[in-house]
């Protein structure tokens, strides 16, 4: 197998004295979509924060294309090709829609994704380009958050609960963009509460519970029963 895009190797982390992740290990291949599932508080968002360097971790715990990046500051990751769509979207509130996209473009890499292509992917954003980002509906804000990750032309995107708080029909609209996103060759880790949806888009599933990996395998080999068990324990 080729060198993995991202290797998590015995990653432990937490908040201050509170350890939330215990020696997590898994690999993500180039262009692969990995579904990360687990109950609330299992440590999914914590894992993303640790990968991004927003929580403490060590040099060898995270490798990107074989290069240890666990000691790099968060701000170096964008140029390496890692982007995040954070839980709750967290758009910059004093920036317009276009400025939210533009600033990520300023500091990210150049490539396939440009402002025009983001607008083509989410035409509604072109219409509202000059509106304050937070004046948009939840689904539209989520599109901005996804666009903000894409425009940096990353090789890896961490999607954190992009359907949280959105109406089902809006969720469909957001996920409709996924084939186009994956077609551009980007790898992704998707945190999602809706297991059925994850199984549809991700071929590789990792389940965590209480900060530990309890399942790691191909989506088609894991039954819904397996997954339910990992959520709630035996």
């Amino acid at each position: 197998m080729a060198e993995p895009l991202l290797s998590i190797d015995r990653l432990s982390s937490g908040y201050g004295d509170f350890q939330a992740l215990f020696e997590l290990s898994f690999d993500l291949q180039q262009g692969e979509m990995l579904g990360l599932v687990g109950a609330n508080g299992a440590g999914k968002t914590t894992l993303f924060r640790a990968i991004m360097g927003l929580l403490p971790r060590q040099q060898d715990m995270v490798r990107f294309r074989g290069q240890p990046i666990g000691a790099l500051p968060t701000s170096d990751l964008a140029t390496l090709g890692i982007a995040m769509v954070p839980e709750g979207r967290r758009l910059f509130r004093s920036l317009s829609v276009e400025e939210n996209l533009r600033i990520a473009g300023d500091y990210g890499r150049k490539g396939h994704w440009t402002l025009e292509r983001i607008y083509a992917l989410f035409p509604i954003l072109a219409e509202k380009r000059h509106a304050p980002a937070l004046s948009l509906s939840g689904g539209q804000q989520q599109m901005v958050a996804i666009g903000r990750a894409l425009i940096a032309n990353p090789d890896l995107i961490l999607f954190d609960e992009i359907s949280l708080g959105l109406a089902p029909i809006v969720v469909n609209e957001v996920y409709a963009a996924f084939p186009a996103i994956l077609a551009s060759g980007v790898g992704a880790i998707v945190v999602e509460q809706d297991i059925a949806r994850v199984r549809k888009i991700a071929r590789h599933l990792v389940c965590i519970r209480e900060g530990r990996i309890v399942l790691d395998g191909a989506a088609e080999t894991l039954t819904l029963h397996d997954l339910t068990v990992t959520y709630f324990g035996e």
Partner: peptide, 15 residues
């Protein structure tokens, strides 16, 4: 402005 709004997310996009 972005750093003022949310320094963590600003750093995540490379600022």
């Amino acid at each position: 402005r972005a750093t003022s709004d949310d320094p963590q997310i600003a750093s995540a996009i490379g600022v």
